[in-house]
Design a protein around this nucleic acid. Structure first.
Lengths: 335, 335
DNA sequence: CTGAAAGCGCTTACAG
DNA sequence: CTGAAAGCGCTTACAG
């Protein structure tokens, strides 16, 4: 005996009405008389009918899904963002699809921007080639990172200003030789943050020599390597404080410095970026820039839904405020 | 001028063949002659045709998606697992949908087990009511957690044995009064881990009094509260070592103990569970049980795909090995 | 308020 | 090797 799932037709037959009527009873109840509605619902109960969403979606020319393009799913940085996205998509009746862009070709964005694949796109990766999103493609919102020139809404923080705040904190503590560990090359966040450092130092009339810039890639290990470089520099000319473009790097930096018997903040003050999970619990607790990750996710999803409803303009930036969290990894310059 | 996307029919018209032929040229190239194939591909180029996946999926009675049901997306514990899942689903041509089960009703599992919604389910949450997955529902694989009695494949570690290993390590260090901070009540992991503690202590002929059991819920804050309790207990009878059912709790526990001027492992040895990101970098670096999270995700996805291909049995457990990582938060009992 | 029929964009037995 | 036609399971103008 086959376990065929009941279809609209089966319900209609049992209720003694047409499939059109059953369909209406379900999606537009007040288009049908009360009696008919009751009969239909009885038949649904009796058959155990559940709607085939794929068929409805095909008919409606939508998929019911939004995809989030994530640079690296394994990076816990994104869990709060995804959680924020899911918290608005779920109640709105959309499915959240996630795709990891690691090692993906440049076509990935276009593949996912197919209306038959998803109704909209949230792009968390700024390293896509600048593609012209042709008409007939799906609405896109960029979150955190962005593709320069891509005409799509952005939800983000002011990375340049945030870096300025971090450096300002170190200046306030009396530091005059300030170093910076960057993110990966060719990354918009990297550019914005180093720009903020440069601006703030220039404003203070301080130099920003090449020796004070350490190339990183956001990873813990690259922070460790930056510390290795810093350790080899002459004690009386190397930075007395370092601002790193991610908390993970700050974590690696601190570990390496300590491994060599030096102290944070005794020998060097350290500021991170992101305020990731548990970073308040390392030793010393890390001073960092807090990014409202869940909020970024929520707003990105909301802007996308607004576009799908035709309510919102397709571009323009939403800038969220950051917060400097002063913890124990920074201290006044020892004289 | 409308920007209608070209359909199969448009390609067929341009190539001078039927839609059936275009369809075959695409999905079964060697069913068509070389000339026809060339004509079809030329027409595809000319029109910029891209297949409508939703229509193909409806026809094929599949959705092309697998959903992962996650207890709490914001918890970075799951990022590695999702990454593992995505790494096998992507290449296999499936979309990964994620849903957060926080605050969801008991029907969620059944809702997602609809064949029109997804082709399969990976359940990471053991707190669903035991439902009979009726025939006509989609294949399910459980990962990490599991619903007792649910007849679905499981990919997990041996939590009971792992807890035994953690306790064994503390016994080896000479500890005789060993405490345990549990996970949330009514959770399969909580039961399995406390069971492992009880077994191992019994095996060593040691007591496991109620005062040595602290109720937690996996969260950092509950670890902090457990430390609060521990601190109020008499110094000469309270545990000299504590095994906590999650790293987050261990982190909170250590922080609170240190805040009261005591030292880890000087005054109390601490073992965590999970080996989450950065936990090797707190002070002191945490001794913990490493769970192969990415591997769990990969294998769960692979078992599900095998079931979809009809290759694998629908139940049976896959047990992955864990590893005790000894770091600085545990030390021999001071006499 | 309700039904017959066309259609969303594909695929696939069935003939030829 | 190729085409005409039916069908995946819904929805929705169009009539009545």
């Amino acid at each position: 005996m086959k376990h065929d799932r009941p279809k609209l037709r089966d319900v209609a037959r049992l209720a003694g009405v047409s499939t059109a009527t059953v369909s209406r009873a379900l999606s537009n109840p007040d288009m049908v008389s009360e009696d008919t509605r009751a009969a239909v619902h009885a038949a649904i109960e009796a058959t155990g009918y559940r709607m085939n969403l794929a068929a409805r979606n095909l008919r409606h020319q939508r998929t019911g899904g939004i995809v989030a393009l994530v640079p690296n799913l394994a990076n816990p940085f994104f869990s709060q963002i995804l959680s924020g996205i899911a918290s608005v998509l779920g109640p709105a009746g959309y499915n959240l699809l996630v795709a990891d862009t690691t090692g993906a070709g440049p076509d990935l964005l276009l593949d996912y921007a197919e209306p038959s694949r998803a109704d909209g796109l949230i792009v968390l990766d700024g390293n896509f080639p600048m593609v012209a999103l042709e008409p007939g493609r799906v609405p896109v919102v960029q979150a955190c990172e962005w593709v320069p020139g891509l005409p799509a809404a952005r939800v983000k923080i002011d990375n340049r200003a945030a870096a300025g705040v971090a450096v300002g904190h170190l200046l306030d503590l009396g530091h005059r030789r300030i170093g910076h560990v960057t993110g990966p090359a060719n990354n918009v966040l990297t550019e914005a943050r180093i720009g903020g450092v440069r601006d703030r130092l220039a404003e203070a009339g301080l130099p920003f020599p090449d020796e004070a810039v350490y190339q990183g890639d956001f990873s813990l290990d690259s922070g460790r390597q930056a510390a290795g470089q810093w350790l080899t520099q002459p004690r009386d000319s190397r930075p007395t404080a370092v601002f790193l473009a991610s908390d993970a790097m700050a974590c690696g930096f601190i570990g390496e410095v300590q491994r060599h018997g030096l102290s944070v903040p005794g020998d060097v003050s350290v500021v991170g970026f992101d305020d990731i999970e548990l970073i308040a619990h390392i030793a010393p607790p890390l001073t960092t820039i807090h990014q409202p990750r869940a909020e970024i996710g929520r707003l990105a999803a909301e802007r996308l839904l607004a576009q799908l409803r035709g309510e919102s303009q397709a571009d323009g930036d939403t800038i969220l405020p950051v917060e400097l969290l002063i913890r124990a990894s920074t201290a006044p310059l020892a004289i």
